[in-house]
Design a protein around this nucleic acid. Structure first.
Lengths: 226, 226
DNA sequence: GATATAGTTTGGTTATGGTCGAAGTATGAA
DNA sequence: TTCATACTTCGACCATAACCAAACTATATC
């Protein structure tokens, strides 16, 4: 009874097409303004504003005011994971998607999951870290090994700084396309940052899909073999 | 855009209070008839029938006719996992649940997650299996070791039979109360079966909560130390 | 056969909530 | 100060869908 009420509350928030589009857009990980989200959702500004107020009040999204803009983001990675999960079920159930088009194909290969890399490339990355002993799995939860700590620190990622924060450094997230785990957490986020900073990928604008450039792909694979 | 539509579709199904209550009831794992679900949801039979038609058409629930009854169940464990996930977010976000009441306490400790054991007891069980080397984690996915195969086979669970089926034998499921993994998959389901068959637990009717009897608790802990 | 039980279908009512235009607030720029 | 941009609030409108009563179908029991 009580459980049903909780379910319904979140469900109805996600259940409105306009809000669902907004949330899907925010899955891209970049903060978006109210106007951008209105455009994304295909509704007027007043409507968008009211939707965002609801999402924000419920705690699904965070907002930070900057000048006359309001930047919205997903509240945290749990929300991102939940949305990813729902999309996974939708994809399984969905109206007989026979052939995943070329666009879906690219998305399967690499995409942004809130703030980290997902898709086959993301799964491959975590696999590689585990194989090389940089990350170890304990009770199903990933932990950075000592070797991993120094490896990432040497790569210019401030892992020790991360360890002092609240957010877990390593976390796994179930990849709906590959049905395997990929790396989330602050380390996952930092790695996506670097991949983007190094110009290995192009973001398709308005989409979660990311495409590796030929050069970027080579570099990335080298990085995994390191 | 397309992703948003998928989200909204599932969201709106889960977003109606009546349907949410039905789904929550089905999380208990037992098949329920349309009338039982109507009662659970607090709506009339015609209303329930229409809701169930929608859920069924969308593929979230399965129905099997038996005489003049129709027994509904969640379509598969992915749906269960999704609902569990949504509840987890709701619990985190929820209206400042300060003190989890005694009832919630029991639910934290042990409950049914669609067809397997969840809560602290479920987490403890998986921990124990891993510690004893019966289950090993590879790439974040649990796999039965050889020792595990013979152990469970000796306990009277037909693991080898399970391996031939489509459904994975071992799967982890993130426990929203403990934020740790517990064991799902066909082995998880079989273990819950045995726990119930041995009379170690009492089901609270109309609830997912299960309570270990004093004796059952002792036996269960022995089983984990085995 | 007649009767009861389980569930669906139909039709009509109601209300929740999404929508936008217009007016209002807040911040920044000229 | 004045104008422009970014967003919110208000008010009114409208569509979707949740709901039930009554009628209907199908299965079981007597």
């Amino acid at each position: 009874m009580k459980a049903g009420t909780d379910l319904a509350q979140i469900g109805s928030l996600v259940g409105d097409p306009a809000r669902a589009n907004m949330l899907a857009a925010l899955m891209g990980g970049t903060a978006l303004t109210a106007s951008e989200l209105a455009l994304e959702a295909g509704v007027g500004l007043p409507t968008a504003s009211s939707h965002l107020a609801k999402l924000s009040e419920a705690g699904l999204v965070d907002v930070v005011r900057q000048g006359r803009h309001r930047y919205y983001t997903l509240a945290d990675h749990h929300v991102g994971a939940m949305l990813e999960n729902i999309m996974g079920v939708a994809a399984k159930l969905g109206p007989t998607r026979v052939l995943p088009g070329p666009r879906d194909q690219a998305m399967r290969e690499a995409r942004v999951c809130y703030d980290h890399l997902a898709g086959e490339m993301g799964v491959a990355m975590l696999d590689s870290f585990i194989e090389r002993g940089l990350i170890r799995l304990e009770d199903g939860l990933p932990r950075l090994s000592e070797a991993g700590t120094s490896f990432f620190q040497n790569s210019g990622i401030d892992v020790n700084g991360m360890k002092r924060k609240r957010r877990p450094v390593c976390r796994t997230c179930l990849d709906w396309s590959a049905r395997r785990a990929h790396l989330a957490g602050s380390l996952g986020a930092a790695l996506l940052d670097r991949i983007q900073a190094k110009g290995w990928v192009r973001r398709e604008k308005g989409s979660r899909t990311i495409r590796f450039t030929p050069m970027g792909r080579r570099e990335f694979e080298l990085f995994l073999r390191d």
